[in-house]
């Protein structure tokens, strides 16, 4: 079966008398896919991430990972399959050095020391941090800490990796570093990747986008499909890329832009094709 993460009519609230943060959420994610979950702050997207590895449990409905419904009894098995990188680079760095931190997840799984000594440099290499093995966290930039966090996830070879706003606190350079790292990792493995984000570059890079609004799935589709709904997206507080805005303006002036361009190159090609017809 190819459906790997499934949400079936999932509802959730943090307290008995509080309003629901998720209402009847229903979607699935296939193996090896890269899915971006977007939505304004408070739309329920981070709650989804925490339901996927049993940090929270659904109030009603089912969350399945690799076919199994997540519950109290199998939560530790689920966590072995689902790696997670959080927003604040400092508050997830457990080790006193980079090496200790990358090893933390492996230590928890009881992996023999010799294997860890081999795995740590391997994982650090995958995120281009191999030169920093002995470094202490306060000597690293935010982007470097997040790359170490990704290495810590890779070291335990999970099937899924969730980035829960992992770039939100970084500067543009740090974001760029993480996006490149994630792209490489995704290409070189069959990891299923779920990124929860506001960053337009991250959204464009994904295979599919799930848009959340007020605790409900508001739209599902490819980045191209999502960004063709410019008006509606900005109504729910989300941004669209510059090229999507420009496409809209060109269309309103009667220029027939065929495909929905996603980046500068596609837009320029489109203009090149259109040029003779203008």
């Amino acid at each position: 079966m190819s459906e790997q993460v499934e949400f079936r009519n999932v509802s959730f609230r943090y307290q008995e008398d509080a309003p629901r943060v998720l209402k009847d959420v229903d979607f699935s994610i296939d193996r090896g896919e890269w899915v971006a979950i977007i939505g304004h702050n408070g739309s329920g997207k981070s709650t989804i991430a925490k339901l996927m590895n049993g940090l929270l449990f659904a109030e009603s409905g089912e969350v399945r990972v690799s076919g199994e419904v997540i519950g109290e009894e199998n939560v530790w098995d689920v966590r072995k399959q689902v790696g997670m990188v959080f927003q604040n680079p400092d508050n997830q760095f457990v080790g006193t050095t980079v090496r200790d931190d990358v090893a933390f997840g492996m230590e928890n799984r009881g992996i023999p020391r010799e294997d860890m000594l081999r795995k740590v440099p391997e994982s650090l290499k995958a995120v281009q941090m191999e030169a920093y093995e002995e470094h202490e966290p306060h000597r690293l930039s935010g982007g470097q800490k997040q790359r170490v966090a990704i290495a810590g996830v890779l070291a335990v070879a999970p099937d899924y990796m969730i980035l829960d706003e992992a770039t939100a606190m970084l500067d543009p350079k740090g974001r760029q570093e993480i996006l490149e790292t994630v792209r490489n990792v995704q290409q070189e493995s069959d990891l299923t990747l779920i990124t929860i984000t506001h960053d337009l570059n991250e959204i464009v890079a994904a295979d599919r986008v799930i848009v959340m609004n007020e605790g409900e799935v508001w739209f599902e589709g490819t980045p191209r499909e999502v960004f063709s709904h410019k008006e509606a997206l900005s109504r729910i507080g989300l941004d669209v890329p510059f090229v999507a805005k420009l496409t809209e303006e060109l269309r309103s002036q009667g220029v027939h832009v065929k495909e929905e361009p996603l980046n500068h190159e596609e837009m320029v090609e489109e203009l090149w094709n259109l040029r003779s017809k203008m």
């Binding site: 940090l55 966590r79 790696g83 997670m84 959080f86 508050n91 997830q92 457990v94 933390f104 335990v156």
Partner: peptide
């Protein structure tokens, strides 16, 4: 947050 991250990493 650290406790949550540690739990997510299987501690």
């Amino acid at each position: 947050e650290l406790a949550m991250a540690m739990e997510a990493r299987g501690y």
